[in-house]
Design a protein around this nucleic acid. Structure first.
Lengths: 217, 217
DNA sequence: AGTTAATTTTAGACAGAGCTAAAAATTTAT
DNA sequence: ATAAATTTTTAGCTCTGTCTAAAATTAACT
């Protein structure tokens, strides 16, 4: 499997998470930052390898083999991200590009030993679950902060959007995974939310509240 | 710089270590396991980038830029090898292929943090020096075991040949870096050498003795 | 020195991944 | 239901890195 093929599988997997049914060529082209024609070529190749199901003009879907392969790449990505944060002093907004490279290194022993070295973690630095060796993913009972009602409490457990800008914004607000927060109130005018984190009260925009996952307490 | 270009630079660097003067196209082709014509093409490309000096039919040499680039790749390779052995339970004969992949990951922060995480080591698991950030390589006063005279003592500090077969052979003899050994005698018939390692006496072939570095005591 | 041998370079081709432009199929909308 | 708009595919080109076969250059050996 080439680097490019692995990246396509990941992209199709992630697109399949939200939208059910077949994934359109255009949607894949957008996340891969390439052209629909290139996507068609690649999908055909992946279909030949039995990793995606594909009917002309009907979009693509991962086969079970493809799904497992995609998950194995995601497992590597997330383990490396955690390694970078825990052992090499990276911050959560710096890890993505490097993990994107490391995830393609081929060695079963490497990844299993890394897993053990990190003590078999279950979530990465963004709160996303780390699939186990067999491709099982621990689903966590998380909801968007925006869905909490006034007075409810939650622990910050993940981000939906892990762009640098958003992560750095959270850093400035001193919001990080594991932090407990309480919803003080909602502002009807712009849907922003007043929350208390530790003993400081802050305002968080609607957009931010729709990209931050919490576990209700 | 592509993966292929980096590998060529490394190959030329290593070939230049022994043979002085220009490195022949054929020599490069051999270590790269490719054809001379492919080497010519690549050398031209590297020459265009100012990384090698090249005159038609006269072989190639690294420029200063090329040398520094090659060393930076070697630095990464050796740091990763040490990481694999020290942190992930790899043995010294298992690390090469994985380090070969990891060495191409691009991130200055990654490699400097890895260096710090490993506590700024100076040698890799095979006893080869790890270049520092600026490309300086600590030369060590090592000699081949074969050059020791009867009665002399040395500490095992490196291997010239780091093939799996040789490393596993050393493992079976329980010879590893840091082990102290004494030359008990040489066998004129086949040039094999009798040595004492710890409190067991063993025989080591001439070939092995010419691939094992020791520091005289 | 001159001829053969070995090395190195050129020329032309190919496979992988991607692009553009144009054709085909499907969807949407009048 | 048919035309317009959108999406998807095809066809043909480009760029890397490689290969083979043939030509050019250098080296080696009488």
């Amino acid at each position: 499997m080439t680097l490019s093929e692995e990246n396509y599988l990941k992209a199709i997997y992630h697109l399949g998470r939200d939208a059910k049914g077949a994934i359109s060529t255009n949607a894949i082209a957008e996340v891969m930052a390439t052209k629909a024609s290139s996507v068609t070529d690649m999908i055909k190749k992946l279909a030949d390898k039995g990793l995606v199901k594909y009917k002309r003009y009907q979009g693509a879907n991962l086969t079970e083999d493809g799904r497992l392969y995609a998950i194995s790449v995601i497992r590597k990505h997330r383990l490396w991200e955690l390694f970078l944060v825990e052992k090499l002093n990276f911050s959560w907004d710096e890890v993505h590009d490097v993990a994107e490279q490391l995830e393609h290194v081929k060695s079963d022993k490497l990844i299993e030993e890394l897993d053990a070295f990190l003590d078999f973690p279950s979530v990465d630095p963004h709160g996303d679950p780390i699939p186990d060796k067999d491709g099982n993913i621990q689903a966590s009972a998380k909801v968007l902060l925006a869905t909490l009602k006034t007075g409810e409490k939650g622990v910050c457990v993940g981000v939906k959007n892990s762009s640098r800008a958003f992560l750095q914004y959270l850093d400035r607000l001193e919001v990080s995974l594991g932090k407990e927060l309480t919803v003080l109130g909602k502002e009807p005018f712009d849907n922003s939310i007043a929350i208390r984190v530790g003993d400081t009260a802050i305002h968080i925009s609607s957009l931010a509240a729709n990209n931050l996952y919490v576990k209700k307490l």
